[in-house]
C-alpha cells in the first residue's frame, strides 16, 4: 500500500517550474532516496510531501489524505501526526537542552512526556547528553537530537533532507546506520540527497532532473 502518492504534481515559482507533472509513489515501510543535482526540485518535492509548502496543480496523498483538500490547519495536523523532519542544518533551538528540544516536538504535538523523550534520546545514543545545549554537542550529536525530535511523536514517515550534509565521514555512517535501522523497524524513510553513495543505501532511488523523474 502506498503511503505517499503524487499524480501530475506541479509546483512553479513564477515562470520557474520546480516540480513538473510528477507522478510517483512510495510504499509503506519503504526506504526511498530522492536524488538529483541542485535545482532538480528534490527539496521542493520534499517540502510539498512534508506539508511545508503548497503546490500549483496535481494531487498529493499522504497516508490516504488528499493534501489539496486540506487547509493550512489540516496540513499542520497531518504534519504533526504523520511526518518527522530531519534537516541538514539540524535547526535545534540553541537555548534549549537536547531533552527540551525533543520535548518541544511533543509539546506542539500533544503533551510533553519526559520519560519518552529520554528514551528516544537514549535510542539514538545520547542518554549521556540530555542536558547539553546544541552548542555543546558535536555535529553528529546535534543531528541525532534532530532525528530523536523527528521520531518522538512516532510518525509513520520520516523525511530527511541531506541529513549528513554537515557531518564528517564517521558521523555520516552513524546517521545512515540509524536511518537504516529505523527503516528495518518498519518506518517509511524518504532521504533527499545529491550523494549517490548515500542514495545507494535506500531500497529505491527516484532520480529527479528539472522537476521530472529521470530514468538514466
Amino acid at each position: 500500500m502506498n503511503i505517499i502518492e503524487t499524480h501530475n504534481l506541479t509546483k512553479s515559482f513564477g515562470s520557474v517550474i520546480a516540480v513538473n507533472d510528477l507522478t510517483i509513489s512510495v510504499r509503506r515501510g519503504e526506504f526511498v532516496a530522492f536524488m538529483g543535482a541542485s535545482g532538480s526540485g528534490k527539496t521542493t518535492l520534499l517540502n510539498i510531501l512534508a506539508c511545508l509548502d503548497t503546490f500549483t496543480s496535481g494531487e498529493v496523498f499522504i497516508d490516504g489524505h488528499n493534501l489539496a483538500a486540506l487547509d493550512e490547519e489540516g496540513r499542520r495536523v497531518l504534519r504533526a501526526n504523520k511526518i518527522g523532519l530531519v534537516f541538514q542544518q539540524f535547526h535545534l533551538i540553541p537555548y534549549l537542552t537536547a531533552l527540551e528540544n525533543v520535548m518541544l516536538a511533543q509539546h506542539f504535538h500533544s503533551v510533553t512526556d519526559e520519560p519518552a523523550a529520554r528514551q528516544i534520546l537514549g535510542d539514538v545514543g545520547l542518554a549521556h547528553r540530555l542536558h547539553h545545549r546544541p552548542g555543546a554537542l558535536s555535529g553528529g550529536e546535534q543531528q541525532r537530537v534532530c532525528i530523536a525530535r523527528a521520531l518522538v511523536n512516532e510518525p509513520p514517515i520520516l523525511f530527511a533532507d541531506e541529513p549528513t550534509g554537515n557531518l564528517d565521514e564517521e558521523n555520516e555512517c552513524n546517521i545512515l546506520a540509524l536511518l537504516q535501522d529505523l527503516h528495518r523497524r518498519g518506518r517509511t524513510v524518504v532521504l533527499v540527497t545529491h550523494n549517490p553513495d548515500l542514495a545507494a543505501r535506500a531500497d529505491r532511488i527516484i532520480r529527479l532532473h528539472h522537476g521530472k523523474v529521470f530514468e538514466p
Binding site: 512534508a50 511545508l52 490547519e73 499542520r76 495536523v77 504534519r79 504533526a80 523532519l85 535547526h91 533551538i93 518541544l104 516536538a105 506542539f108 504535538h109 525530535r149
Partner: peptide, 16 residues
Amino acid sequence: AAEIALLKALAARPRH
C-alpha cells in the same frame, strides 16, 4: 525567523 519556521514545521500553531 529560522526558530519560528522550525516551530511551525514542528506543528506549532501561529497563535502559539
